[in-house]
């Protein structure tokens, strides 16, 4: 093989690798934040994490006065940080919590909940991250408050005491 052919093969190979990773990097941007405040809850249907025989859809919560919806995953370190606050929202303020388990492995997710507590009234598995796209989620963790089927509040990143107060104030 002459040098020329080798160099051409090398170039093509590296360009392909570059394009592949470039596409991966860009695909991260499909989750760009969209302002959903004031809009209706997007339609979704997910596998039910706690009961495989049933699915979870947006219809399930349409009658609820207030719903806190939280995107989380066991591999996400900030999710560990905010978890006690989700527990607090459930135990202290008795809010209705829906967890959306984002691109996660079911057994790791179960271990996570066993270890840190399960504050959720319902959990859906968003294994492909599609629901997150419908919500225009930026990344995880991310928390939405839905009031009478409309999104009224959104917080990107781990919860803190100030956000907890803001959520409770929406009651």
């Amino acid at each position: 093989m002459s040098h020329k052919i080798r160099i051409i093969i090398l170039s093509i190979l590296l360009i392909l690798i570059f394009l592949f990773f470039y596409k991966v990097l860009l695909s991260e941007k499909t989750y760009q934040p969209r302002s959903m405040i004031g809009k209706s809850v997007p339609e979704f249907s997910m596998e039910n994490f706690k009961d495989i025989n049933r699915r979870i859809t947006n219809q399930d919560f349409s009658t609820k006065e207030i719903v806190v919806l939280n995107f989380w995953a066991s591999w996400c370190v900030p999710c560990r940080i905010e978890h006690p606050m989700l527990n607090e929202l459930k135990k202290k303020y008795k809010l209705f919590l829906v967890g959306i388990n984002y691109k996660d492995n079911a057994s790791n997710a179960k271990k996570f909940l066993n270890e840190l507590g399960d504050p959720f009234d319902a959990i859906g598995s968003d294994s492909k991250g599609e629901v997150a796209i419908h919500f225009g989620a930026y990344g995880i963790p991310e928390t939405y408050v839905i009031k009478k089927n409309k999104i009224v509040f959104r917080h990107i990143g781990p919860l803190n005491q100030d956000v907890v107060k803001a959520i409770v104030a929406l009651k």
């Binding site: 470039y22 990097l25 860009l26 991260e28 941007k29 591999w75 996400c76 370190v77 691109k103 990344g139």
Partner: peptide
Amino acid sequence: ILNSVHAFANDPDRGLYIL
């Protein structure tokens, strides 16, 4: 790009430069 316990914040621009 990798989702894991080690993940730092997503930042495609930095990623692009290193790539």
